[in-house]
Design a protein around this nucleic acid. Sequence first.
RNA 1: GGGGGUAUAGCUCAGCUGGAUAGAGCACCGGCCUUCUAAGCCGAUGGUCGCAGGUUCGAAUCCUGCUACUCCCGCCA
Length: 561
Amino acid sequence: MKEQLTTLIQQALDTLIAQGVLAADIAPQIQIDRTRDKSHGDLASNIALTLAKPAQRKPRELADLICAALPANSLVTRTEVAGPGFINFFLSDDSNQAVIRRILEQGKAFGTSDTGRGRKVQVEFVSANPTGPLHVGHGRGAAVGDSLCRLLAATGWDVASEFYYNDAGAQIDNLALSVQARCKGVTPEDPEWPQDGYRGDYITELAQAYLRGDTIDAEDRHVSGSGDVEDLEDIRQFAVAYLRREQDMDLKAFAVHFDVYFLESSLYTEGAVERTVARLIENGHCYEKDGALWLRTTEFGDDKDRVMRKREGGYTYFLPDVAYHLNKWQRGFVRVINEQGADHHSTVTRVRAGLQALEQGIPQDWPDYVLHQMVTVMRDGEEVKLSKRAGSYLTLRDLIDEVGRDATRFFLVARAPSSQLTFDIDLALSQSNDNPVYYIQYAHARSCSVMRKLAELGWEWQAQSALQHLDQLQEEHEKSLLRQLDRYPEVVAGAALNCEPHLVAAYLRELAGDFHTWYNAHKMLVEEQAVRDARVALSQATGQVIANGLELLGVSAPEVM
RNA sequence: GGGGGUAUAGCUCAGCUGGAUAGAGCACCGGCCUUCUAAGCCGAUGGUCGCAGGUUCGAAUCCUGCUACUCCCGCCA
């Protein structure tokens, strides 16, 4: 619709240029906005305001000229110059109602687009190390990252999701030592408990499973425990597999899928780390100091240089990070989005600096980052304190078990990633209008219930014939709903472009509100067939869009509630 | 001290990349169930968009400087 209108305005401008009213060398950006106020019509353009200065004319005068030059068409029924020089466009009922046809014809595909043109994009998210179950912060990453994948796929990108984890570093040593200690009967309260050891109850369960000699089938590895308390390497393998399996179950319960699990250890075994170091040294960006090897990241905008190889010989996490991202680049991901907690934001400059130092022609601002802020959890009006050290923590699975997958996903994705998020358990549990998840799902269920009721009453409804009667939709509530439905593709495109899935959540809340308002004000299943057909079509279309939107958030759209 | 983020109604938050009179939901107040699901709907109240400048036809939005809150600043990841 906007495209068609843009073409019309362009034609009007061309006419004015031909008439000598406008200079031929102006290259206007034609911007068309939805109006906020219905009295301003359906769409509006500020073109006369932006062109006023170069054209050396008053905005309103120019607006009048543009309106007069607009070619005849069936789209616009009326134009109006308003305010400082806006041109308001009132569209024909027919073009406003056409959205229902598009929705019913396109079904699940309504709202999708091809801006990605099949280009490859990788989204890395969660990437929790296998040292414990996933907590609520990981949950936010999972909800945002997965929704982002869905949004990108919906806008034509070839999306690959990836989970990166360190299965071999110092933290894994701590984990293995903790499990070993627990196997020997030592508890976290004892003085001989390992320094920096992990203390959660899951360590005990893990130790018991190891001693039993359980076999672990994780998504990307399968290990049987020997039960040998002295075999630290065996404990390490077992512990990693065990916690990977735990995380798999968390993610499965959350309906989040990854295409690739990438192991940090593989960067070592395949020589990528060594090659990266050699390259950085060769490029002259390194130096030795205090027995360590440093990368001069300050050359690339970092505020201080970073250690790559520690005095004791091992590498810091920074180097494998660089090697990993080089690997992503070499896999052909011209676009990469890393979704992480904002507490890791300092790695952004560092990784980009490391990539620049490799001199591989990687763009300075590659990869992209989406950083989400912290999550706090409230229950009974009080903050639930999470302390990993003390081992008291609310896991993602606890939360899913308590409030359900849909509510968990919705709440974690419904805020801008850049905003801190308060997860109110009581709100998520409430089955009332306070709770946006139920509100939205209920709107969908209602649209389904209308169809059931229709069948009960012995009426037939067919899309093709119903579409002939859309001109029956003359109520104000219906027009609002039509406008809202028409926005959906733009909402999806905007959410994908800005990596902000919460825009979809906010939209769905509004759409559901408009639907409930209409539903309450007007009976759908009326005797008069033409009206009934049209209203059911609108209801069906709304249900379809709600289902499509919820799908993008990974939330189910129940048919009955 | 340096850096990231945030600041909009009593509370929780939107605000479509600069547009017209600032938007929801809770909460509070007043209405609506013999009617397709009241898990709902309608109405009223509520704002110096943190503060001060700047950019321009026009700023909650962009720039600068403050203030408050929060996260990070390891040879941990």
